Amino acid sequence: MRILIWTALIICVGYVMIHQFLLQFPADEEWKYNLGILLQGLSLSYIAAFLFFIVHDYYPHFLTKKKYQPIIDRELSNLWEICNSLTYSMSKHSGVKVYYKSENFEESVAEQLRNLPVQFNKDVKEENIDSEDISSKTKHPLPPDEEFDKKDKPIIIREMGFDKWSDAIEYTTSNISLTLNKVLKMKDIVKEETVIKIFDLERSISDFRIVAKIYEESHNKTFKNGYLEQVFVKFYEGTEELKDYNKRHKDPKNFL
């Protein structure tokens, strides 16, 4: 569409210039002269409309986008880091990596879920025997260590640790919803495709959250689920869409 608009503008400007030159030569028939004047009027009208669009719509929109684009990049970059952390944990525990642009993309998503364990084996002991008082066999509870506990969690999303997939997905879902609300307030600046991808992202992770809670309560072995294997493809597609915003946020000079 943009190419068509600029092409029409070039044609109109070119015609006006050529017509001014042709006016130096009298037309052999009146209808040719009238047609030339009509086309010139239409061309001038198009040029005027184009200039009005530039001044009234495009330039203000350009200034607004320039002002808020860094904020959008920051918010979507943060969301990408959260989603990417979740997919990394899924790859780690399933042993299956998903590459968005690979030929077997849908198959690898399904394979990852089929190999992703629902439950984790916990080897952490709540109590420990004091080495200085072994003979008494008295047990002393270890003092809480939040930093150690966080690192010992099987699922890490950014700096947050989780024991269950449902909790990790709940955290991811809440961040997606918050970001989506912010994006919708600036929907005139964000690409329509990005907004649609985030909607699909939210829907797919919400479905995963429901399945995760059910499977954890029923002690399923893996997340093998035909419906989830189909819809979770959208999560990876949305994450890939956010990747460009992460790159621009980290290095905005390359996107000027």
Rank of each mutant, 00 (worst) to 15 (best):
R2I: 14
I3Q: 10
A8K: 15
I11N: 05
V13H: 00
Y15S: 04
M17H: 07
I18W: 13
H19L: 08
H19Q: 14
F25E: 15
F25C: 03
E30I: 13
W31Q: 09
Y33G: 05
Y33I: 02
N34V: 08
G36V: 01
I37Y: 03
I37C: 01
L39W: 10
Q40W: 01
Q40R: 12
G41R: 12
S43M: 01
S45A: 14
A48C: 06
L51S: 11
L51G: 04
V55I: 15
Y59C: 01
H61D: 15
F62K: 15
K65Y: 11
K65V: 01
Y68N: 13
Y68M: 09
Q69M: 12
I71E: 14
E75L: 09
L76H: 03
L76Y: 01
L79H: 06
E81A: 14
I82R: 13
I82H: 06
C83T: 11
S85A: 09
Y88N: 11
S89K: 06
S89W: 00
K92P: 03
H93V: 04
G95K: 08
V96P: 09
Y99M: 10
Y100N: 07
E103K: 15
N104Q: 12
N104G: 04
A110F: 02
N115S: 14
Q119A: 08
Q119C: 01
F120K: 04
V124L: 09
E126L: 14
N128T: 15
I129M: 08
S131F: 11
E132F: 05
D133C: 06
S135K: 13
S136M: 08
K139F: 11
P143M: 01
E147N: 05
F148R: 00
F148H: 00
K151Q: 11
D152L: 02
K153E: 01
M160P: 00
G161E: 00
W165D: 03
A168Y: 01
E170Y: 04
N175A: 08
S177N: 12
L178H: 08
L178D: 11
T179P: 04
L180K: 15
N181R: 14
N181C: 05
K182A: 07
L184S: 07
K185G: 15
D188L: 11
E192T: 14
E193R: 11
E193H: 05
I198M: 08
R209I: 06
V211G: 01
V211N: 04
A212G: 09
K213C: 06
Y215R: 12
E216G: 07
E217Y: 07
N220C: 10
N220V: 02
K221D: 14
K221F: 06
T222C: 07
Y227D: 11
Q230M: 12
V231N: 06
V231R: 12
F235I: 10
Y236I: 03
E237H: 04
T239Y: 01
E241C: 09
E241D: 14
K243Y: 14
D244Q: 13
K250A: 07
P252W: 02
K253T: 09
K253D: 09
